[in-house]
């Protein structure tokens, strides 16, 4: 399968790989999985006191498109409020990475990961 240039770029130089320390303030985690391909994706966001996402980390076990989608998302959520982050759509991810139809589910997974991370944050800090 031919990957787009952008997918390859994120795949070869993934942004923000890893995890935040367990003790760090304002960290929330979204865990999602795609049964169809067995992919597992973890997205962490670090939210400042002002409610802005300061930083993000990801760890993904899956194909190049899944890795690129999560890498891209860590860049996109930075500087956004939680509500703004929730506005990111899988279609935007798929378009940015030029994902073929069979890989759309990777972008869906990344969108779901954002939702899961935000939900985790709100569960921890109900306001």
């Amino acid at each position: 399968m031919a990957y787009s240039v952008k997918v390859l770029e994120h795949y070869e130089n993934p942004r923000n790989v890893g995890s935040f320390g367990k003790e760090e303030e304002g960290v929330a985690t979204g865990m999602v999985g795609a049964p169809a391909c067995g992919d597992v994706m973890k997205l962490q966001i670090k939210v400042g006191k002002d409610g802005i996402i300061e930083d993000a980390r990801f760890k993904t076990y899956g194909c190049g498109s899944a890795i690129a989608s999560s890498s891209l998302v860590t860049e996109w959520v930075k500087g956004k409020t939680l509500d703004q982050a929730l506005e990111i759509r899988n279609t935007q991810i798929a378009e940015e990475l030029a994902l073929p139809p069979v890989k759309i589910h990777c972008s869906i997974l990344a969108e779901d990961a954002i939702k899961a991370a935000v939900a985790d944050f709100r569960k921890k800090k109900p306001e």
Partner: peptide
């Protein structure tokens, strides 16, 4: 339809992540 379903408990996904 098994393409899109997030009805997977977090502990299962965490365990899968750790195995990987």
């Amino acid at each position: 339809d098994f393409v899109r379903n997030n009805a997977l408990p977090t502990d299962f996904l965490v365990a899968q992540m750790e195995l990987r």
